[in-house]
Computed example of a mutant assay.
Amino acid sequence: MAEDPLILNPNGGMPRLLEIMRRLRDPENGCPWDIEQDFATIAPYTIEEAYEVADAIEREAWDELKGELGDLLFQSVFHAQMATERGLFTFDQVADTMSDKMVTRHPHVFGDENRDKSAEQQTRDWEVVKAAERASKDQTGTLDGVALGLPALLRSVKLQKRAARVGFDWPDISQVVDKIVEEAGELAEAREKLTQTEIEEEFGDMLFVIANLARHLKIDPEAALRATNAKFTRRFEGVEAKLAARGKRPEDSDLAEMDALWDEVKVEEKS
């Protein structure tokens, strides 16, 4: 380590991080775990780190955000190092590709186009540029290029947005609500008559339409569900605290008692 001034340099920036990653993957002297990884095994960690960034932002945990962004950056470095070893591309090429993309997609900032545009017009222009990029990759179908690895609710919204651009969409939000009622009825019926696979299909149909309702309401369904998860966690922890004050745990209680305490917690929150 005494001969590694870059690795020991606390201000080494990106060169330091890239060298650390290269050393971790060194076949002779690197870390056995890091050496064994490939794109597929690292991908779940990449997704997890992205969610941890979102979580820190949602909680306004600014003291944690720097570390979470570093963890996410490390995922890009890890993938780029594996790509470099295969002769596919380097981290610098990843950065250059993103820089080129941003310059191309913002001609009103880096080119001669008028910057005096509404956010809506800029979004439309952005979509035109992205459509041209997809066409250059032979992604000519309306739904081509919507990543399979996205969270299911988010991918549902993106698929529906693409279909809506070519007119495949309900024109009125009431029709979406009616469809949710219809799908809920089909799901209730499916419980009695269909196989588990068919029930899952009906449930998926209902979730898909709910995602569509979120799109029409301009709601991010992932964010909305995360907020509800947080609310449920907070309230249930409140129930546990009230039970603890009685010298009890949830398993020592019953639904009636916990439901009453739940209502108390809700009232206290609103007050």
Rank of each mutant, 00 (worst) to 15 (best):
Asn11Cys: 02
Phe74Tyr: 11
Ala131Glu: 14
Arg155Trp: 05
Ser253Gly: 01
Leu73Lys: 01
Val146Glu: 09
Asp92His: 04
Val109Pro: 02
Ala54Thr: 04
Gly145Ser: 06
Leu65Arg: 01
Phe89Ser: 15
Ala164Tyr: 08
Leu69Phe: 01
Ala54Gln: 10
Gln75Phe: 06
Met98Cys: 13
Thr197Ala: 15
Lys231Asn: 13
Ser271Tyr: 10
Gln160Leu: 08
Ala135Val: 08
Met82Tyr: 07
Leu148Arg: 08
Cys31Val: 15
Leu213Ser: 04
Asp138Arg: 09
Ala132Trp: 09
Asp38Arg: 00
Glu28Met: 08
Glu202Gly: 08
Leu217Tyr: 08
Leu261Tyr: 08
Ala244Val: 05
Ser174Phe: 04
Arg246His: 04
Glu200Tyr: 11
Ala184Leu: 11
Met98Leu: 15
Ile210Ala: 14
Val128Met: 09
Thr46Cys: 13
Gly141Asn: 11
Arg59Met: 04
Ile219Leu: 11
Thr97Val: 08
Asp26Tyr: 03
Ala2Asn: 13
Gly30Tyr: 00
Val166Thr: 00
Ser156Met: 15
Ser156Gln: 11
Val94Asn: 02
Thr84Arg: 10
Ala50Ile: 08
Leu143Ile: 09
Arg16Phe: 00
Asp138Asn: 11
Pro27Gly: 06
Asp144Gln: 01
Glu257Gln: 07
Val128Ile: 09
Ser156Leu: 11
Met14Phe: 12
Asp205Trp: 05
Lys248Arg: 04
Glu182Ala: 06
Phe110Tyr: 15
Val166Asp: 03
Ile173Trp: 05
Ser118Lys: 08
Val176Met: 01
Asn114Leu: 09
Ala54Asn: 06
Ala40Asn: 13
Ala83Met: 15
Val109Arg: 14
Gly167Asp: 03
Glu251Cys: 12
Glu240Ser: 09
Leu88His: 12
Ser156Asp: 15
Leu17Cys: 09
Glu49Thr: 05
Glu48Arg: 07
Thr233Cys: 05
Asp205Leu: 02
Gly149Arg: 04
Phe203Pro: 00
Ala54Trp: 01
Ala131Leu: 10
His108Pro: 06
Ser156Val: 07
Ala244Glu: 12
Leu65Thr: 00
Ile35Arg: 01
Ala227Val: 07
Pro151Met: 06
His108Thr: 10
Asn9Lys: 05
Leu159Asn: 14
Ser76Leu: 15
Asp263Tyr: 09
Asp169Gln: 10
Phe203Trp: 11
Glu49Lys: 03
Ala119Thr: 09
Phe78Tyr: 14
Val53Lys: 00
Gly141Trp: 10
Val94Phe: 03
Val109Tyr: 05
Ala230Leu: 03
Ala40Asp: 14
Leu159Ala: 03
Val103Gly: 13
Pro32Lys: 02
Arg246Lys: 11
Val53Arg: 00
Ala224Tyr: 04
Asp55Pro: 01
Met206Arg: 13
Pro250Trp: 01
Trp126Asp: 13
Gly167Trp: 02
Glu3Phe: 07
Lys101Gly: 12
Ser99Trp: 14
